[in-house]
């Protein structure tokens, strides 16, 4: 199949409607996490859902747009991390394509792969734009690592990985469970979903 035909298939009206809903899920699910006071963000579950159902490109676009919209309506800082969200969708879709989302334990591995991939983008943004700091409790870890003699880059690397690992594994597991729980007649309409369900 040519690239153009593949893109057309990947971005059908059904997929676009899915992506719009997923963007909203990304934004509102943060409320559930703060309700339960859990130490995760869960702000990319919609992105991973789209990646599983409609492929890496649709996933990447969902992540990118989530952060741009977030930046537009509440916190411009979120827009700076839009490339990170893009990578999450892209890599989740590639993991699904490589059949790494068929069992729950594979979802855990995929969560770890997503974490490593997003660090590659997140670390330069954090170090060069934000001086390695986020304004949250995680910054004490950066301070501690600097005090033990590490440079800023590796201090941020360790902080980003430990912070994101639990979150992205939880996100991958939840997304996997949701796709498995969706009715067959729904997932059958997304050609990419068979890599997860079939």
């Amino acid at each position: 199949m040519s690239l153009k035909a593949q893109l057309k298939k990947d971005f059908s009206t059904l997929t676009l409607a899915l992506m719009a809903v997923a963007i909203v899920l990304n934004i509102v699910l943060g409320q559930v996490v703060s309700l339960l006071k859990l130490p995760i963000f869960l702000d990319s579950i919609g992105t991973v859902l789209v990646a599983l159902l409609a492929g890496p490109w649709a996933g990447a676009l969902t992540g990118l747009l989530t952060n741009l919209i977030w930046g537009l309506i509440s916190d411009p800082v979120a827009a700076a991390f839009a490339p990170v969200a893009l990578v999450i969708g892209l890599v989740a879709g590639l993991c699904a394509k490589a059949r790494l989302f068929r069992q729950w334990w594979q979802a855990i591995i995929s969560g770890a792969i997503i974490t490593v991939a997003l660090s590659i983008i997140a670390i330069p943004v954090r170090v060069y734009m934000f001086g390695g700091v986020t304004g949250s409790g995680a910054d004490f870890l950066v301070a501690y690592l600097l005090a033990t003699g590490r440079d800023l880059f590796s201090a941020v690397l360790i902080t980003v990985i430990t912070n994101n690992l639990i979150d992205k594994v939880a996100t991958a597991l939840l997304a996997w469970a949701i796709v498995k729980g969706l009715p067959k007649r729904f997932t059958a309409r997304f050609s990419r979903a068979s890599a997860v369900t079939g």
Binding site: L16, A17, A20, V21, L25, L174, L182, F186
Partner: peptide
């Protein structure tokens, strides 16, 4: 942590099932 899935899943399922109608 146990309460996470019962809160997230119904929202995700209901939102996703709406997708077909929206399309």
């Amino acid at each position: 942590v146990k309460a996470l899935f019962p809160l997230v899943a119904p929202l995700a399922f209901s939102a996703l099932v709406d997708v077909e109608e929206r399309a």
